[in-house]
Design a protein around this nucleic acid. Structure first.
Lengths: 191, 191
DNA sequence: ACTTTAGCGGAACAGTGTTCCGCAAACAAA
DNA sequence: TTTGTTTGCGGAACACTGTTCCGCTAAAGT
């Protein structure tokens, strides 16, 4: 049961939690590419312990962002009953952007072609894309979105637009995403 | 003069050229993050020689892309007399996208916050932004572009949209850039 | 002819991710 | 309890990066 405070297994679970907390902190402070040793140090454990719980560095990254991704999915499910699909999509993308821009590590991680971060990629494919896809479909059905837009490409593009840098900050990213969305609405004009 | 075939200086210039050629090849084959040793090997020199000519790895990257950036600037200057500024901007952005997508290393390099690649960044600031800025200004003057759009943010956004990955290829990037541009045109509609 | 110096190659150093191995403590068996 | 087994742990060790350093050769200078 849940009261196994002193057992070996409980201890392991505690260090795992400590690692997740430490990693999340270090990621926001120094980015996703922060050294494993720093994370281990912050959690007060040795590097070996990190690899015991997360065989690859990338798995730790994925674990850190997983529940945050789940939050995005949850929001999409809330919005999926909305009477105004276009507005719902806007809202959701807005939240997604907020998320990407705040935990600025995720944007980099999503873009990275690191083979290990593939799992994060497929996590997005498995969860985020279907969730977003529903909103997209409904918007398309109402004629509020160009049918050629796929949920995947859209999310990918939004993710890329949220990669910040010197002279290109949060507001710029938000503005550009808005413009992109405007361009994704059904083309009134020709061709 | 130019006929110093056997001099020491001429030899140095030759190895420098060989390095640039080798680096360009390696960059398209394996990306900008390819190991220095591979480049040295391809050029048939030792690593020390690479660092003699390019004190930091990043300087080599900059040198490789510099003249390709110059090509983009030249195109912008050609187009700046065009009677249709909106069309001209479209054409130029199209060429820029083609460029980014082909030498796919540059996109990564431009996005990277690597301190050393700052010089590439400022190269873009110094040359590309003014060149593009002219086209943007003219398009704005004709009312074909939202005045709130700055050349820098636009190029930055386009650069980000051109970061490819599995399931997000050249065509996706091109389509998304077109949509972004559509969203940058003067907002007919409300707010 | 002798000295100086530019250009070069590659060993050596430093910082990453990752693996390996010995150890101590919790558990299982006797 | 005593003995053996397993789990979780720490940190040294390894492989692969960028980068520096140093000795060597041959051209340039005297």
């Amino acid at each position: 049961m849940a009261g196994d405070e002193g057992t070996r297994e409980a201890g392991a679970r505690r260090t795992r939690e400590a690692l997740l907390v430490a990693a999340a902190e270090v990621f926001v402070e120094r980015g996703v590419q922060a050294p494993v040793r720093d994370i281990a140090g912050r959690a007060g454990v040795g590097v070996g312990t990190v690899y015991r719980h997360f065989p690859e560095r990338a798995e730790l990254v994925v674990a850190v962002y997983r529940h945050q991704i789940d939050d995005c999915v949850a929001l999409a499910e809330e919005l999926r009953e909305s009477p105004d699909p276009g507005e719902a999509l806007d809202q959701w993308i807005g939240a997604f952007v907020e998320f990407l821009v705040t935990k600025h590590g995720l944007g980099v991680a999503l873009q990275s072609d690191d083979a290990g971060l593939q799992s994060l990629h497929s996590l997005m494919l498995d969860k985020l894309v279907p969730a977003c896809g529903l909103l997209v479909e409904r918007a398309v059905a109402r004629g509020e979105l160009d049918p050629a837009v796929t949920a995947y490409a859209l999310m990918r593009a939004v993710g890329n637009l949220c990669l910040l840098g010197p002279g290109y900050d949060r507001e710029d990213a938000q503005a550009m995403v808005e413009r992109l969305l405007a361009g994704c609405r059904s083309t009134h004009g020709g061709q």
